[in-house]
Design a protein around this nucleic acid. Structure first.
Lengths: 241, 241
DNA sequence: CGACACTTTGAAGACGATCAACGCCGGTGG
DNA sequence: CCACCGGCGTTGATCGTCTTCAAAGTGTCG
């Protein structure tokens, strides 16, 4: 019923049999979200769980003084709201909008809870996924507390390159500079300035084109705080169970 | 076999029947850890899961330049290493030492994995607990990125007071100022200075004694960034399932 | 009493935010 | 076709915040 190619990208379903998957997806509702459409807003009641088949979802919070802070950027294969549902949070903690045209599978809160309870392989996948998200969030909190803006940017670029399998010799920024700065919790102006200083460390950004002379040297001299190694940052969906 | 009073404090076992609990705890090993003892160190292989019956465990990481960053402080009722185990992380990501004399229950990695798989109520509790930790970590990352040192301190004091049920009119800091500063990711000197400025907002700290004139006013004027309300910050162990 | 851990205070400096101006580009409408 | 506009990014000057380095104060415990 659903295009299997996209469903195979969902990390949460990794390792499950085809039968298990189709049983799980029976109650899914397919949703198409145009660019800039609102999926849900901060404060609204949590009513659904989502899997992203295509596109990108932007999560952010608006602070009382009118500033925006991007809390996460989710892409195809990732899921939304599992933690809010399982933490028994009644209302959404962030705003979610589509960065581009996006296709989602939508499930009820009950669907998630009952499968977490009755389907042990699914529950293990959930545990693994949320544990990994926790790890990433802890690293982010630590880095925000200890690293300079330049280090944050260097780490982001290096991580982007490694995670997406880009060629360090030349790749494009996955998002606008404004969005990246917001994700890193720094001002666009600072981002712009620090990018130039990164030339001294073999990181060259012109327009949206990035080239990194020596990945290892970046890790060593700029991101030495990232004591966390690469393997940990890549979700081991395949090796699980 | 184990003192039931302490076992009832374990959030992860909330809502389970006495039979379930004693079945689960059959394989537990009781460990006593004197003050300052090392439970495990960053980089060592992950071999155990722990429940804290009494005492306090200090988690921190040492950055390459020799600085320490406290990542968490865990108390009786909380558990350690579940996320590392379920994320299939081979090695510990932090150092863990006892802040005071501490009593733990120790389990094998296999014990945790197999109970997560075969015991659905336990798995739900795990999911709930880790989801909540994720929530807290995300808030922390956001606050580190958007709040000033003074706001972080005010939030910490207010949260401490509310969470532990202290009387705002007068309570003691739960840890040394050095440790609190390290937990908040700011320097002890900055902490010391900012504390004085907080007098203007009705927060008075002399020695380790704290008094807060008006909790709501603090929330409104100093912590207005803490858009996250109280209910969310308290683990709803009781209402779960 | 002395050693040591913990905390406070001061002066200087680094860093990032803010405010303001400008350049660039794509789209829209006259 | 050109004028205008809005979104995006760059640059400069200035300001406030936090860190750093250094010194001294406080407390506890042997």
């Amino acid at each position: 019923m659903q295009p299997t190619k996209q469903i195979n990208k969902i990390h949460l379903l990794a390792g499950l049999s085809e039968q298990e998957k189709s049983a799980l997806l029976e109650d899914a509702k397919l949703r198409e979200l145009p660019r800039k459409a609102i999926l849900f807003a901060h404060g609204e009641p949590v009513q659904h769980f989502y899997m992203i088949l295509e596109g990108t979802i932007h999560l952010y919070r608006t602070t009382p003084d009118g500033n925006h802070k991007t809390t996460n950027i989710l892409r195809a294969g990732q899921t939304l709201c599992e933690a809010e549902i399982l933490d028994a949070c009644k209302n959404h903690r962030v705003n979610a909008i589509a960065l581009e045209n996006t296709t989602l599978l939508e499930f009820t809160v009950q669907w998630l809870k009952s499968n977490a309870k009755n389907h042990s392989n699914f529950a293990l996948n959930l545990l693994s996924s949320i544990s990994h998200q926790l790890h990433l969030a802890e690293i982010e909190a630590e880095q925000q507390a200890t690293m300079s803006a330049m280090q944050l940017i260097a780490c982001f670029l290096r991580r982007t390159c490694v995670l997406y399998g880009f060629d360090p010799k030349g790749f494009d920024l996955p998002y606008s500079k404004t969005l990246i700065a917001s994700r890193l919790g720094i001002k666009l102006e600072t981002f712009s300035r620090k990018i130039k200083e990164l030339r001294d460390f073999g990181i060259n950004v012109t327009g949206s084109r990035v080239s990194i002379t020596d990945l290892k040297s970046v890790q060593k001299h700029v991101c030495s705080f990232c004591s966390v190694s690469e393997e940990c940052a890549i979700h081991p969906a395949a090796q699980r169970r």
